[in-house]
Each structure stands twice: as structure tokens, then as C-alpha cells.
Amino acid sequence: MHGDTAQREKKLWTVGGFVVLVAITWWRPIYPAEQALHHSLTVIGLVALILVNRARPVPYTSFLLILIFLALHSVAARWIYSFVPYDDWTDSLFGFRVSDLFGWRRNNFDRLVHLSYGLCFGPVVCRALKPRLGKWAAFAAVDVVLSTSALYELFEWAIAMTLAPGAAEAYNGQQGDMWDAHKDMAIATLGAVLGVAVARSGRNDSRSLSMATNDGGGWS
């Protein structure tokens, strides 16, 4: 019972920190309409997480990973993805611009968010599916990330068909790249592969350590 209470408290503090971050991103919004549209998905994600956690408590690590992704999405939404001033941040803090360092010609914060989607959700889905699918849970997790990424890109396409061209470009953040949707899906899938691989490796290492300890050592 004490452990359950501690878990609930950690989750409450984590959600509180996330809400504060979202509130900060809304201070004097630059693109209020577009930011609100992006945050419609943030609200859906947060409500879904809370409801699922109430029905069946989500492990804290999974809970945290989901909120990390939503936090990155919230930061990106303030600058509608295409104008996140990370070059100004690194120039102010470290004296160099990331784009100059890597030779980038576009704002790549959207790529980071798509990568984080795979990195964060891949292990979460794999862990959730493991009891039912066993060794196939890793494959299914990557498939879920790829499928939902494709659905999101279709959603963006629907937005682009509905809104005026300028508003669609501002929301989608393609920055003139005709292959933007394909690259986003590929990066999210790569993130899922990496995230699941790291998570499985960590569990295997923990299992090996546990077996070695139970066997009376073996590390000397």
C-alpha cells in the first residue's frame, strides 16, 4: 500500500510539472490559433493517460515517458514546430548554433519530436503487450508506432485539405519538403526500434544480474 501511495504521489507531481510547463508555453502565445489546434491532441493524450491509469495503474516509467513526449510536443507547439529557436538557445548558452554545426537548412525540432514519439512510446507499448504477445510484443510495438504515425500524417493531410494553404503549411510544418510526412514516419519508426531494443536490453541485463545474484555470485 505504501508503494502504491508513493507511485500515485510521483505521478501527481509529474503531471503537475507537465501542466506548469504547458502553462509557460502559453505565456504571450505567438501563434495562438495554431498552438491551440496542436494542443487539442495534447489534451486528448493527457486525458487518455489519466483515464487508463485510473482503470489500471500504469508503471511510473511508462507514465513518465509519455509525459516527456507530450512535453516536447507542447514546446514545439508554441512555435508551431517550424520556428522553435533552438539555435538561439544553444548560441546563448554554449556559443554555437546547432544548424551551423550540422549544416541544417531547416528547423529540425519536428524531427526530434517524431523521434521521441518512437523512443518513448515504443517501450511503453512493448511492455503493455508483453504479457499477451510474449516475444512478439517488440515487433507489435514498432508496428503500433508506425501505424499511428501514418494515421497522424493522414490527419495532417486532412487538415491541409481543409484549411487555407498558408494555415495548412503553418500547422503541418513541412517547410517546403515534399517528403516531410515520409521522413517523419521513418524517424518515429527508427525511434521505436531503438527504444524497444534499449528497453529489452535493460530488462535482459537486470534478469541476468538477478540470476547471478540468486546463484551466489559469478561476477568475481
Rank of each mutant, 00 (worst) to 15 (best):
L129C: 01
P131N: 04
A188H: 08
W136H: 09
S116D: 11
A137L: 04
A137K: 12
N204T: 10
A160R: 14
L194V: 06
Q174C: 07
V196F: 11
A164M: 05
T162G: 15
V198Q: 00
A150K: 11
Y117P: 09
T189K: 09
W136S: 09
E169T: 04
V198D: 00
V125I: 12
G122I: 00
A140E: 09
Y117H: 12
L151T: 11
L151Q: 14
P123Y: 05
S149I: 01
A167W: 00
L133I: 01
V113N: 06
L115Q: 07
A158K: 10
A158W: 08
G122W: 01
L194T: 04
S116M: 13
D180V: 07
V144H: 02
P123K: 01
R132M: 10
E156Q: 13
V144Q: 03
S201Q: 08
G118K: 02
W136Q: 11
G134N: 08
T189E: 05
V124W: 06
A140G: 09
T148P: 10
A186S: 15
L146Q: 11
L154A: 15
A138N: 03
Y117C: 10
C126E: 14
D184E: 02
L115P: 14
I187H: 08
A181N: 12
D205T: 09
A167D: 15
V142E: 04
A197S: 13
D205G: 08
A197Y: 01
A170N: 11
A168V: 05
V142P: 03
L163N: 10
A164F: 05
A158N: 12
A140K: 08
A137G: 08
V142F: 07
A164T: 12
L133P: 02
S147Y: 00
M161G: 13
K130P: 07
N204P: 07
H182G: 06
R127I: 01
I187G: 09
L115F: 13
S147V: 06
S201D: 02
L163G: 11
A164K: 03
G122P: 07
V124L: 07
H114N: 10
G202R: 01
D205Y: 03
K130T: 13
M178A: 15
A128C: 08
G134K: 10
V198N: 01
C120K: 01
Y152L: 04
A138P: 01
L119E: 07
E169Y: 02
G122K: 06
R203W: 02
A138K: 00
Y117L: 11
P165I: 14
L194A: 11
A160I: 12
A197W: 03
A140I: 07
L129V: 00
Y171R: 04
F155K: 06
G118L: 03
M161K: 15
A138E: 02
M161W: 10
G166R: 07
L146S: 15
Q175L: 03
W136T: 06
Y152Q: 12
I159T: 14
G173W: 09
T148R: 05
H114F: 03
A141C: 05
T148I: 00
R203E: 03
V198H: 00
T162S: 15
E153H: 11
F139L: 14
A170C: 00
M178Q: 13
V144P: 06
C120A: 10
T148A: 08
E153V: 05
L119P: 12
L163T: 12
W157H: 15
N172K: 13
L154Y: 11
G118P: 05
F139A: 14
